[in-house]
Amino acid sequence: MRINLEILSSAYLLGESSAPTPRIKELVPNMMLRRRLTPASKLLVELLGSLEEFEKGRIVCGSAYGELGVTASLLESIKEETALSPSDFQNSVYNTAVSYLSILTHNQSEILTLSSGDKTARAVLKAGALKALDGDVLLLVCFETLNMPRIAEVNRCIDYLESAVALVVRHTSMEANLRVEQSATKGIPASISEMLFLAQEAEKKACVVEVVL
């Protein structure tokens, strides 16, 4: 099945060590709440703050590695036989970032997180397209936060250790002017590449993308 999605709004953030979140204090004025946010949550809050046409609604999120920093912190604690941080554990699940988003925006809608390795962005687009057939506006997001100590021991090809991309979409009967491709930007995680391509194209023109399920 082929489903056309109109991209209503888009945004992305890329950072070699950490991606910039200049509006985070304004977007989350409560300091205690802000300090609890994980790196990925901050990226998603920042992206949501710059998007149009979406305040609340269904969200499909994707990440191949989740919150890698807290996962590494848990492994270090276990190795060192020290007590695990309960915050690290609760933040290690893959749906942490969008869950914080739902709490901050009081969004009680359906929120899903996919993790399909290098195919994650495409999986998010497919799941988003399927859901969009119901007629509502959806937020699709992908992120990777790989900036953990000793990442060099496993990372051989990713330059941007923090990255996030968001698309606000709805199903349309309009003709597609775009197909899903990899972004031309080098050094980004493969898991966000196709979403990034669409966000970059949407900066230049009004986009209707054809998603093949």
């Binding site: 699940v93 893959y94 749906n95 929120i111 899903l112 997180t113 996919l114 993790s115 399909s116 390795g117």
Partner: peptide, 9 residues
């Protein structure tokens, strides 16, 4: 034919 994986705890 294809695969998707969900991870929501």
């Amino acid at each position: 034919r294809d695969d998707l994986s969900f991870s929501t705890a």
